[in-house]
Structures are given as structure tokens and as C-alpha cells.
Amino acid sequence: MQITTQAVQIGLEWDTRTGSVAIPIYQTATFRHPGLGQSTGFDYTRSGNPTRQALEDGIARLDGGVRGFAYATGMAAITGLLMLFKAGDHIVVTEDLYGGTCRLFNQVFNQFGLSFSYVDTTDLAAVEAAIRPETRALFVETLTNPLLKFADLPALAELSRRRGLLLIADNTFLTPYLMRPLELGADITVYSATKYLAGHNDTLGGLVVTNRPELAERIYFYQNSVGAVLAPQDSWLIIRGMKTLGVRLDRHQENALRIATWLEQHPRISKVHYPGLPQHPDHALMKRQARGFGAMIAFEVDKHALVEQVLLKTGLISFAESLGGVESLITFPEVQTHADIPAELRARLGINNVLLRLSVGIEDADDLIEDLRQALEG
């Protein structure tokens, strides 16, 4: 069954009593027991809720895993995964990643004895060189934020297996529609469901999937123990969004390629980062391993003064953080989404004072191009 069909069908089987096509919102904290020592399978919503369960089952099917888990936010999902490790453990991490993830690693979990090394995960030799005796995992973004680099996931999976590491793949930018990391050798996938999966900039959520039953048991233990679970209403909103994942991403990507191609030709743009462009260094690799190139674009304007002009003069494109919704959003990574990355690392990576990140929505591409044109030239 195609992933688009699977997405549309999420939750359809749940309400057999009434035949409701939409999964009900089970807005309850607790559930009645049918008898002493008996359970309906649901006892307390922190431990399990039918609306959340429908979402968790749905993302597991889309990702090809054995079990899914839904958390209050994407950061809560990553926090839940870090509970798998103990003081003294070391994790190798993609260097070009979301600033909030960097903050969580460096300013929260460092104080509990976890250590992290940041490397270019497109460089297999650099990844292997960063592995220590105490290394327990490799954490990669399948398409990095904000510079859109794409690593060879099967090669990283083979390295992880050989060195006895867990491979955790943050697949937020691509979603299961464009790439299924578990099929390429990852042990765990994690998503900010706030982004493309929910798709409407109206809710928060995080999702985790694994294809290993023993890992699923451990992840559930920590999910239930810590309790940063997704509420029923938000679970319902993400299910609703996921049903249109395929058609939305098709439009997102169509727009992104047109805009990236236009930006390349504009005299005020000095560099465009978009893997759908043939000259992108990871274009050929991504074409082999993914079903598409996503809808995020990073681009550099020719001088810093133009940054504020673009941010404030775009009308259709909102100056706002986040990404992946139907509305186009633009942000300035150096002082917003990536401010928590050390300045020297930002400078080395190219997260500089002329770099803008554009989340391309599903509006008409001609209208978005005109909005960018008048902002750049006005």
C-alpha cells in the first residue's frame, strides 16, 4: 500500500461502534475498569490514550517501524530518547543542526554527564574518527538545518552496526513521505511533528519510531515514566494534518524548486542552498536515497543590510520561526533558530549574517516569487 493511502487511512479503524470516519478526541484523563484486575487496555492518559494511540500506530506504519511514540514537542521527543543513555556516554552529532537541539545537548544533558561531539556527517571518515570507546550513538539530521546537507544514511548505518552504535535519524525536513530512514538502516527516527507532519502551524508535537522491539519497550518505559506525552486534541490535529501529507509535500517541493531556481538568477543573491538544484553537492546522493528534495531553502543576500529589508518587506511570506506549514515563513538563523550554536561554530559552518532560511509553503509559486522580488528590490 502506498504511503499516501496509509496516511489518509490513519485512525479510520478506531471507532467501530459508531463507524466514525474521523478518529474521536478521547478528551479524558482516566478510564473506567470493567472489573477488578481488568482493563480496557487504557487506564490513564499519560500511559495511553486512544487518540494518541491512533497517531502512534499511524506514524509507525508510515515509517515502517514496530512502534511509534507521541510527545508534547519535538524537543520532548529528543529528550525522551536521551533517557536511553547514562552518565559517561558519548554521542556523535551532526554539526549543522537545529540550534534548539544543540542547546538541549550542551546546556541541559551535559550537566547529567552525557558528552557530544559535532562532526560533518557527510564525511564518513570524520564521523568514524569522532567515535570513542564510550560512544553509544550517532545522531544525524537526514537533511540538515539550515544548510541542507544530506548524509549517506546506509553508510552511516553500516558504520554504526560495525561499531555497536545506535543510529538516530531526525527526519523532520523530509518526513516518511520523502525518506524512510529505518529502511536505510537507522534504529530510531524522530520528528518535530509540529512541522510538515501536522502541516498547519497550529499545534506542537514530537514523534519517535523504532523498528526494534526491545528498543520500543525501553522507549515506552521512559515515555510513560517522564510523562511528556502529547494531549488528545493535539494528537487529533496531527492526524488530520498527516492525512494530506503527500499532496502538501508535492506542492511544497514544486514551489521550492521554482523559487530556488529563480533565486539563483537574482543579482542580489550570492548563494542558494537547495538539494533539488543539480549543482548542490549532495543532489545525486539524495536522488538515490530519497523520493524528493524537500521544501526548505537557505540563501545568502549580497549584504547584511538587505536581511532586515527582506524580513520586513515580504508580505505573503511571514517573518516567523518554525517551518513546514502550508504558509511560507522566513527567518534569520544567526539570531533566531541557531543563536544557541557557539559563534565560532556558526561562522565555520556558514550560518552567517547574510543567511536567510525560507520554508516554502503551498501558495501560488508566482505570487511567492513576486513577494521575494519586491522585497529584494524595493
Rank of each mutant, 00 (worst) to 15 (best):
A375M: 04
H252R: 08
P176T: 02
D43F: 14
M179Q: 07
R212Y: 10
F112Y: 14
P342E: 13
F112R: 12
R32W: 01
D123Q: 08
D371I: 01
G99Q: 04
R212L: 14
E217Q: 13
P267C: 00
A284W: 09
G41S: 10
A125W: 06
P181Y: 05
D152V: 04
T172G: 02
V127F: 07
G276A: 11
L237G: 00
A87P: 08
T16K: 13
R103T: 05
L174G: 03
T142H: 04
R32L: 12
V307D: 05
Q233I: 13
T28A: 15
L156A: 04
G199T: 08
L55R: 06
A125D: 14
G276H: 06
L138R: 01
I168S: 06
Q253K: 03
N171W: 03
Q53L: 13
Q111G: 07
D15Q: 07
L81R: 00
I330L: 04
F139S: 08
E217C: 10
G100R: 04
T121K: 09
A70Y: 04
Q374H: 15
G199R: 01
K195R: 14
K86L: 06
L207S: 03
S20P: 00
L376C: 02
L143Q: 12
G11K: 05
L143G: 05
E134L: 11
L62Y: 02
L376K: 00
N201R: 11
A305T: 08
L376S: 03
G68V: 07
E183G: 14
D120S: 10
F150R: 02
T4R: 08
H90V: 10
Q2K: 14
T51K: 07
R348L: 13
R132H: 14
E363H: 14
I317F: 05
V119Y: 03
Q289A: 10
L277A: 04
I131V: 15
K287V: 04
R46E: 14
R132F: 13
F85K: 09
T5H: 12
L356F: 02
D170W: 01
I317T: 02
R180K: 15
I238V: 15
F221A: 15
L156R: 01
